[in-house]
Amino acid sequence: MPDEGCSERPRKIVHVDMDAFYTSVEQRGNPELRGLPVAVGSPAARGVVAAASYEARKSGVHSAMPSVTAQRKCPDLIFVRPRFDVYKSVSLQIRAIFAEYTPLIEPLSLDEAYLDVTENLKGMEIATEIASEIRAKIKQVTGLNASAGISYNKFLAKMASDLNKPNGQAVITPKNGPAFVEQLPVKKFHGVGPATAEKTHRLGIETGADLKEQTLDFLTQHFGKSGSYFYGIARGIDNRQVKPDRVRKSVGAEDTFAEDIHSYEPAREGLQPLIEKVWSYCEANEIGAKTATLKVKYADFSQITRSKTFPSALPAIGDLEDMVGLLLAPLFPTRKGIRLLGVSLSSLERRAAIAEPQLRLAL
Protein backbone atom coordinates (compact mmCIF):
# COMPACT_ATOMS: atom_id res chain seq x y z
CA MET A 1 0.00 0.00 0.00
CA PRO A 2 1.68 3.23 -1.09
CA ASP A 3 1.96 5.94 1.52
CA GLU A 4 0.49 9.28 0.47
CA GLY A 5 2.12 9.38 -2.89
CA CYS A 6 5.51 7.90 -1.91
CA SER A 7 7.07 4.42 -1.97
CA GLU A 8 7.69 4.16 1.77
CA ARG A 9 5.82 1.74 3.97
CA PRO A 10 2.51 3.31 5.07
CA ARG A 11 2.27 4.44 8.65
CA LYS A 12 -0.30 2.93 10.98
CA ILE A 13 -1.93 5.63 13.08
CA VAL A 14 -4.60 5.02 15.71
CA HIS A 15 -6.68 7.83 17.18
CA VAL A 16 -8.32 6.79 20.45
CA ASP A 17 -11.18 8.94 21.71
CA MET A 18 -13.00 8.21 24.96
CA ASP A 19 -16.80 8.25 24.70
CA ALA A 20 -18.41 11.12 26.64
CA PHE A 21 -15.40 10.93 28.94
CA TYR A 22 -16.25 13.36 31.74
CA THR A 23 -19.87 12.27 32.07
CA SER A 24 -18.94 8.58 31.75
CA VAL A 25 -16.51 8.96 34.65
CA GLU A 26 -19.27 10.57 36.72
CA GLN A 27 -21.80 7.87 35.81
CA ARG A 28 -19.26 5.18 36.64
CA GLY A 29 -18.69 6.67 40.08
CA ASN A 30 -22.38 7.19 40.83
CA PRO A 31 -24.66 4.32 39.74
CA GLU A 32 -27.71 6.54 40.30
CA LEU A 33 -26.63 8.62 37.28
CA ARG A 34 -26.38 5.70 34.87
CA GLY A 35 -28.86 5.80 32.02
CA LEU A 36 -29.84 9.38 32.85
CA PRO A 37 -29.14 12.64 31.00
CA VAL A 38 -26.05 14.11 32.69
CA ALA A 39 -24.06 17.26 32.00
CA VAL A 40 -20.73 18.20 33.52
CA GLY A 41 -20.80 21.92 34.21
CA SER A 42 -22.71 24.51 36.18
CA PRO A 43 -26.50 24.94 36.17
CA ALA A 44 -26.07 28.64 36.99
CA ALA A 45 -27.53 31.26 34.68
CA ARG A 46 -24.09 31.98 33.17
CA GLY A 47 -23.01 28.35 33.26
CA VAL A 48 -21.87 26.28 30.28
CA VAL A 49 -22.06 22.56 29.52
CA ALA A 50 -18.53 21.16 29.52
CA ALA A 51 -19.65 17.67 28.50
CA ALA A 52 -22.91 15.81 27.94
CA SER A 53 -23.79 12.14 28.30
CA TYR A 54 -25.24 10.31 25.31
CA GLU A 55 -28.61 10.29 27.07
CA ALA A 56 -28.47 14.11 27.19
CA ARG A 57 -27.28 14.36 23.61
CA LYS A 58 -30.47 12.68 22.44
CA SER A 59 -32.29 15.84 23.57
CA GLY A 60 -29.88 18.08 21.68
CA VAL A 61 -27.59 18.95 24.59
CA HIS A 62 -23.93 19.33 23.68
CA SER A 63 -20.68 20.77 25.02
CA ALA A 64 -20.25 24.56 24.97
CA MET A 65 -24.03 25.03 25.13
CA PRO A 66 -25.29 27.57 27.69
CA SER A 67 -26.72 25.75 30.70
CA VAL A 68 -30.07 27.54 30.45
CA THR A 69 -30.44 26.34 26.86
CA ALA A 70 -29.50 22.80 27.87
CA GLN A 71 -32.08 22.77 30.66
CA ARG A 72 -34.73 24.04 28.28
CA LYS A 73 -33.96 21.27 25.79
CA CYS A 74 -33.76 18.62 28.52
CA PRO A 75 -35.76 19.50 31.67
CA ASP A 76 -34.54 16.32 33.42
CA LEU A 77 -30.88 17.16 32.86
CA ILE A 78 -28.66 16.49 35.90
CA PHE A 79 -25.67 18.81 36.36
CA VAL A 80 -22.46 17.56 37.98
CA ARG A 81 -19.56 19.82 38.88
CA PRO A 82 -16.35 19.00 36.95
CA ARG A 83 -13.61 17.11 38.81
CA PHE A 84 -10.49 17.55 36.71
CA ASP A 85 -8.28 15.78 39.25
CA VAL A 86 -10.37 12.62 38.83
CA TYR A 87 -10.45 12.90 35.03
CA LYS A 88 -6.68 13.34 34.98
CA SER A 89 -6.18 10.26 37.17
CA VAL A 90 -8.28 8.11 34.83
CA SER A 91 -6.50 9.63 31.83
CA LEU A 92 -3.15 8.51 33.25
CA GLN A 93 -4.50 4.95 33.56
CA ILE A 94 -5.45 5.05 29.90
CA ARG A 95 -2.07 6.51 28.93
CA ALA A 96 -0.35 3.61 30.70
CA ILE A 97 -2.31 1.20 28.49
CA PHE A 98 -1.20 3.07 25.37
CA ALA A 99 2.41 2.82 26.55
CA GLU A 100 2.18 -0.99 26.52
CA TYR A 101 1.86 -0.81 22.74
CA THR A 102 3.97 2.16 21.62
CA PRO A 103 6.10 4.99 22.98
CA LEU A 104 4.79 7.22 20.17
CA ILE A 105 1.80 8.77 21.95
CA GLU A 106 0.62 12.31 21.29
CA PRO A 107 -2.19 13.36 23.65
CA LEU A 108 -4.63 15.98 22.39
CA SER A 109 -6.53 16.28 25.67
CA LEU A 110 -7.35 14.12 28.69
CA ASP A 111 -9.66 11.93 26.61
CA GLU A 112 -7.98 11.48 23.23
CA ALA A 113 -4.58 10.75 21.72
CA TYR A 114 -2.78 9.71 18.55
CA LEU A 115 -0.70 6.53 18.59
CA ASP A 116 1.80 5.52 15.92
CA VAL A 117 1.76 1.70 15.94
CA THR A 118 3.68 1.17 12.70
CA GLU A 119 6.46 -0.39 14.79
CA ASN A 120 4.87 -1.45 18.07
CA LEU A 121 6.01 -3.10 21.27
CA LYS A 122 3.74 -6.10 20.79
CA GLY A 123 5.02 -6.93 17.32
CA MET A 124 1.46 -6.88 15.97
CA GLU A 125 1.02 -6.41 12.24
CA ILE A 126 -2.64 -5.36 12.06
CA ALA A 127 -3.46 -1.93 13.44
CA THR A 128 -7.18 -2.66 13.74
CA GLU A 129 -6.36 -5.54 16.10
CA ILE A 130 -4.17 -3.24 18.18
CA ALA A 131 -7.03 -0.73 18.42
CA SER A 132 -9.45 -3.47 19.46
CA GLU A 133 -7.07 -4.74 22.16
CA ILE A 134 -6.51 -1.25 23.52
CA ARG A 135 -10.22 -0.51 23.68
CA ALA A 136 -10.90 -3.82 25.44
CA LYS A 137 -8.15 -3.18 27.98
CA ILE A 138 -9.43 0.35 28.67
CA LYS A 139 -12.85 -1.15 29.35
CA GLN A 140 -11.34 -3.82 31.62
CA VAL A 141 -9.20 -1.37 33.63
CA THR A 142 -11.46 1.69 33.81
CA GLY A 143 -14.94 0.41 33.00
CA LEU A 144 -15.20 3.07 30.28
CA ASN A 145 -15.84 2.82 26.55
CA ALA A 146 -13.47 4.15 23.91
CA SER A 147 -13.79 4.57 20.17
CA ALA A 148 -10.92 4.44 17.70
CA GLY A 149 -10.02 5.45 14.18
CA ILE A 150 -7.28 3.72 12.22
CA SER A 151 -5.62 5.10 9.12
CA TYR A 152 -2.33 5.94 7.43
CA ASN A 153 -2.23 9.53 8.69
CA LYS A 154 -3.39 11.64 11.62
CA PHE A 155 -6.16 13.55 9.86
CA LEU A 156 -7.92 10.44 8.60
CA ALA A 157 -7.42 8.53 11.86
CA LYS A 158 -9.11 11.41 13.69
CA MET A 159 -12.00 11.48 11.23
CA ALA A 160 -12.38 7.68 11.39
CA SER A 161 -12.75 7.67 15.18
CA ASP A 162 -16.06 9.52 14.83
CA LEU A 163 -17.57 7.12 12.30
CA ASN A 164 -18.74 4.37 14.66
CA LYS A 165 -19.15 6.20 17.97
CA PRO A 166 -19.89 5.26 20.66
CA ASN A 167 -17.87 2.16 21.52
CA GLY A 168 -16.77 1.35 18.01
CA GLN A 169 -13.92 1.74 15.56
CA ALA A 170 -13.41 2.33 11.86
CA VAL A 171 -10.54 2.14 9.42
CA ILE A 172 -9.77 4.33 6.39
CA THR A 173 -7.24 2.66 4.11
CA PRO A 174 -4.77 4.37 1.74
CA LYS A 175 -6.94 3.16 -1.13
CA ASN A 176 -10.10 4.74 0.29
CA GLY A 177 -8.61 7.85 1.91
CA PRO A 178 -8.79 10.32 -1.01
CA ALA A 179 -12.37 9.33 -1.89
CA PHE A 180 -13.42 9.64 1.75
CA VAL A 181 -12.11 13.20 1.93
CA GLU A 182 -13.73 14.18 -1.37
CA GLN A 183 -17.25 13.44 -0.09
CA LEU A 184 -16.67 14.99 3.34
CA PRO A 185 -18.14 18.46 4.05
CA VAL A 186 -15.29 20.88 4.79
CA LYS A 187 -17.11 22.12 7.90
CA LYS A 188 -16.68 18.61 9.36
CA PHE A 189 -12.91 18.56 8.82
CA HIS A 190 -11.00 18.30 12.08
CA GLY A 191 -9.47 21.69 12.79
CA VAL A 192 -11.97 23.68 10.72
CA GLY A 193 -13.82 26.04 13.03
CA PRO A 194 -16.84 28.27 12.34
CA ALA A 195 -14.77 31.13 10.94
CA THR A 196 -12.89 28.93 8.45
CA ALA A 197 -16.09 27.09 7.50
CA GLU A 198 -17.73 30.44 6.81
CA LYS A 199 -14.79 31.49 4.66
CA THR A 200 -14.77 28.30 2.60
CA HIS A 201 -18.53 28.70 2.11
CA ARG A 202 -18.03 32.23 0.77
CA LEU A 203 -15.43 30.86 -1.65
CA GLY A 204 -17.85 28.17 -2.86
CA ILE A 205 -15.87 25.34 -1.25
CA GLU A 206 -18.31 22.99 0.46
CA THR A 207 -16.72 19.54 0.18
CA GLY A 208 -13.31 17.91 -0.02
CA ALA A 209 -13.87 17.55 -3.77
CA ASP A 210 -14.37 21.32 -4.04
CA LEU A 211 -11.21 21.86 -2.02
CA LYS A 212 -9.26 19.50 -4.26
CA GLU A 213 -10.15 21.59 -7.31
CA GLN A 214 -8.29 24.61 -5.92
CA THR A 215 -4.66 25.29 -6.69
CA LEU A 216 -2.00 25.54 -4.01
CA ASP A 217 -1.51 29.22 -4.87
CA PHE A 218 -5.23 29.91 -4.42
CA LEU A 219 -5.38 28.15 -1.04
CA THR A 220 -2.22 29.87 0.19
CA GLN A 221 -3.61 33.23 -0.90
CA HIS A 222 -6.82 32.75 1.09
CA PHE A 223 -5.65 30.62 4.03
CA GLY A 224 -2.00 31.53 4.47
CA LYS A 225 0.16 28.82 6.04
CA SER A 226 -2.88 26.53 6.31
CA GLY A 227 -3.20 26.54 2.52
CA SER A 228 -0.61 23.81 1.98
CA TYR A 229 -2.22 21.70 4.72
CA PHE A 230 -5.64 21.98 3.03
CA TYR A 231 -4.07 21.18 -0.32
CA GLY A 232 -2.65 17.97 1.11
CA ILE A 233 -5.64 16.69 3.07
CA ALA A 234 -7.92 17.33 0.08
CA ARG A 235 -5.88 14.54 -1.52
CA GLY A 236 -5.80 12.34 1.57
CA ILE A 237 -2.23 13.43 2.39
CA ASP A 238 -1.11 14.43 5.88
CA ASN A 239 2.58 13.96 6.64
CA ARG A 240 2.47 15.22 10.25
CA GLN A 241 4.27 12.86 12.61
CA VAL A 242 2.98 11.63 15.95
CA LYS A 243 5.12 13.67 18.35
CA PRO A 244 5.17 12.32 21.90
CA ASP A 245 7.49 14.94 23.39
CA ARG A 246 6.15 17.99 21.64
CA VAL A 247 6.01 21.11 23.79
CA ARG A 248 4.19 23.78 21.84
CA LYS A 249 5.03 27.44 22.21
CA SER A 250 1.39 28.10 22.98
CA VAL A 251 -1.99 26.41 23.09
CA GLY A 252 -5.21 28.23 22.34
CA ALA A 253 -8.86 27.94 21.45
CA GLU A 254 -11.28 30.44 19.99
CA ASP A 255 -14.89 30.61 18.88
CA THR A 256 -16.84 32.82 16.47
CA PHE A 257 -20.36 33.47 17.71
CA ALA A 258 -23.53 33.30 15.65
CA GLU A 259 -24.65 36.63 17.15
CA ASP A 260 -22.47 39.49 18.38
CA ILE A 261 -21.99 39.71 22.15
CA HIS A 262 -22.52 43.05 23.92
CA SER A 263 -22.35 42.29 27.66
CA TYR A 264 -19.98 40.64 30.13
CA GLU A 265 -21.97 37.58 31.23
CA PRO A 266 -22.55 36.00 27.80
CA ALA A 267 -18.91 36.75 26.93
CA ARG A 268 -17.67 35.03 30.08
CA GLU A 269 -20.07 32.17 29.37
CA GLY A 270 -18.69 31.78 25.86
CA LEU A 271 -15.13 31.66 27.19
CA GLN A 272 -15.72 28.78 29.63
CA PRO A 273 -15.53 25.89 27.12
CA LEU A 274 -12.40 27.49 25.61
CA ILE A 275 -10.78 27.67 29.06
CA GLU A 276 -11.61 24.03 29.69
CA LYS A 277 -10.25 22.99 26.31
CA VAL A 278 -6.84 24.62 26.72
CA TRP A 279 -6.55 23.51 30.35
CA SER A 280 -7.42 19.92 29.39
CA TYR A 281 -4.63 19.95 26.80
CA CYS A 282 -2.10 21.18 29.35
CA GLU A 283 -3.21 18.63 31.92
CA ALA A 284 -3.02 15.77 29.42
CA ASN A 285 0.49 16.77 28.37
CA GLU A 286 1.80 17.57 31.87
CA ILE A 287 2.41 21.17 30.82
CA GLY A 288 2.37 24.29 32.98
CA ALA A 289 1.70 27.80 31.66
CA LYS A 290 2.75 31.17 33.03
CA THR A 291 1.03 33.48 30.54
CA ALA A 292 -2.69 33.74 29.83
CA THR A 293 -3.96 35.76 26.87
CA LEU A 294 -7.49 36.87 26.02
CA LYS A 295 -8.26 37.58 22.35
CA VAL A 296 -11.24 39.71 21.32
CA LYS A 297 -12.38 40.39 17.76
CA TYR A 298 -15.15 42.94 17.33
CA ALA A 299 -17.95 43.10 14.78
CA ASP A 300 -15.92 45.55 12.67
CA PHE A 301 -13.07 42.96 12.64
CA SER A 302 -10.79 45.09 14.79
CA GLN A 303 -8.93 42.95 17.30
CA ILE A 304 -7.29 43.33 20.70
CA THR A 305 -5.46 41.03 23.11
CA ARG A 306 -4.95 41.28 26.84
CA SER A 307 -2.32 39.19 28.67
CA LYS A 308 -1.10 38.47 32.16
CA THR A 309 2.13 36.67 33.06
CA PHE A 310 2.68 34.99 36.41
CA PRO A 311 5.99 34.28 38.15
CA SER A 312 5.15 30.56 38.19
CA ALA A 313 2.80 28.22 36.34
CA LEU A 314 -0.93 28.53 36.99
CA PRO A 315 -1.73 25.80 39.55
CA ALA A 316 -5.40 25.11 38.77
CA ILE A 317 -8.15 25.76 36.24
CA GLY A 318 -9.88 28.01 38.75
CA ASP A 319 -6.91 30.39 38.65
CA LEU A 320 -7.16 30.56 34.87
CA GLU A 321 -10.91 31.19 35.06
CA ASP A 322 -10.37 34.04 37.53
CA MET A 323 -7.63 35.63 35.42
CA VAL A 324 -9.65 35.46 32.19
CA GLY A 325 -12.55 37.10 34.01
CA LEU A 326 -10.29 39.90 35.22
CA LEU A 327 -8.90 40.45 31.71
CA LEU A 328 -12.40 40.50 30.25
CA ALA A 329 -14.23 42.74 32.75
CA PRO A 330 -12.56 46.10 31.84
CA LEU A 331 -13.74 45.73 28.22
CA PHE A 332 -17.34 46.39 29.24
CA PRO A 333 -19.48 48.26 28.59
CA THR A 334 -18.59 48.17 24.91
CA ARG A 335 -20.07 50.09 22.01
CA LYS A 336 -19.01 47.41 19.52
CA GLY A 337 -20.35 43.89 19.46
CA ILE A 338 -17.90 41.02 19.94
CA ARG A 339 -17.88 38.37 17.22
CA LEU A 340 -14.99 36.20 18.39
CA LEU A 341 -13.31 35.33 21.69
CA GLY A 342 -10.20 33.28 22.30
CA VAL A 343 -8.04 32.08 25.17
CA SER A 344 -4.42 31.00 24.87
CA LEU A 345 -1.69 29.88 27.24
CA SER A 346 2.01 30.44 26.59
CA SER A 347 5.37 30.34 28.38
CA LEU A 348 4.79 26.60 28.49
CA GLU A 349 7.05 24.11 30.21
CA ARG A 350 6.92 20.53 31.36
CA ARG A 351 5.44 20.18 34.84
CA ALA A 352 8.27 17.81 35.77
CA ALA A 353 10.64 20.71 35.18
CA ILE A 354 8.65 23.00 37.47
CA ALA A 355 8.02 20.48 40.25
CA GLU A 356 11.64 20.01 41.30
CA PRO A 357 12.42 23.60 42.38
CA GLN A 358 9.06 23.77 44.13
CA LEU A 359 10.03 20.65 46.11
CA ARG A 360 13.34 22.19 47.13
CA LEU A 361 11.55 25.30 48.34
CA ALA A 362 9.16 23.19 50.38
CA LEU A 363 12.07 21.47 52.07
Rank of each mutant, 00 (worst) to 15 (best):
D319W: 01
F79P: 12
E206S: 14
M18V: 12
R360T: 07
L328N: 04
L219E: 07
F189D: 05
I205Q: 07
Q214E: 14
K225Y: 01
G29T: 01
P166A: 06
I126H: 13
C282S: 09
G204H: 11
F98I: 03
I172T: 13
L328Y: 10
L216G: 01
W279N: 00
D111P: 06
S42W: 06
R28E: 05
A39P: 09
P194K: 15
T196E: 02
E32M: 09
A20L: 03
K187Q: 14
P10D: 10
Q221M: 12
G204P: 07
N239D: 10
L33C: 10
R202S: 14
H222F: 11
L314T: 02
V251D: 00
E259W: 10
L359E: 14
D255L: 04
T334F: 04
S132F: 04
A70V: 08
I172F: 07
I338R: 04
E206P: 00
L216M: 14
V278T: 13
V61Q: 13
D300F: 08
Y298P: 04
F218W: 15
E276Y: 15
V343Y: 03
L320E: 06
I275M: 13
G337C: 05
A136E: 15
P82R: 10
N164V: 01
S89R: 15
G177F: 13
V251Q: 03
F84L: 15
T196N: 12
L348W: 05
A352Y: 00
V16N: 03
P333D: 05
G288S: 12
L144Q: 13
S109T: 05
R28F: 12
R72W: 08
R350I: 00
A148P: 07
I205R: 03
T196S: 13
